[in-house]
Amino acid sequence: MLKVVQLDTYHGRIRVLKNISLHVEKGEIVTIVGANGAGKSTLLGTIAGVYKPKSGRIFLGTKQTSCLPAEKVVKDGIILVPERREVFDSLSVLDNLRLGAFHRYYTDKKTIEGDIEKILALFPPLAGREKQLAGTLSGGEQQMLAIGRGLMANPKVLLLDEPSLGLAPLVVKEIFEILLSLRKQGTTILMVEQNAKAALKVADRAYILERGVISHAGMARELLQDSRVQSAYLGARLHA
């Protein structure tokens, strides 16, 4: 579905991503875990067209994506749900969802209201609060709104940047359960997480990013058991 081939991205003169290749199959949840500053957000941002890669290619299906700018990549079928949610806080929940469908609003007008109903059914805390301003929602609800807004774009691949950031463990659990039900419906998800344990539990496969390089790749379940991964990212002590 999504294929990234030998991607290099620079921030100024600093090489943040070094020769990254990865792939995500249809209906999979794939997670990229790694420490702060490993380049996780840059990787998602490059796929979404926020940053321009120096070299490398990104394919969606067999088609190469536009790469730049972000507002065109949406049309290719890639949507990024950004870190810190970035909802339109002075607009209502309903408007946020409608604007998620911006790129198809005029071509697809009839289906949009129905899609909003589906999103609200998927995120029960949002239902009945369509008129409320997004800025007054709790952190977890804002995250749900941000994911819902992303889904409104009808993406082929959903990119999630730190969906658990700043949320209580119970809320994180709720959101990750929704991700699992999204996968059942056939949504393809590429997710970046610092909360490696939670991410590896829901994901099918995982990549570990260390200072811009993919150091491990494999089935999420296996990485969860891997002692090196445990010591580095899951807080387990080898000699405890």
């Binding site: 700018p69 949507i79 806080d89 604007l99 998620g100």
Partner: peptide
């Protein structure tokens, strides 16, 4: 609304295709 979205959060607006 799209214009307001752009006022409130330009980055997110771009991600939505605005």
């Amino acid at each position: 609304k799209a214009l307001r979205a752009c006022m409130v959060n330009k980055f997110a607006a771009r991600l939505m295709g605005i």
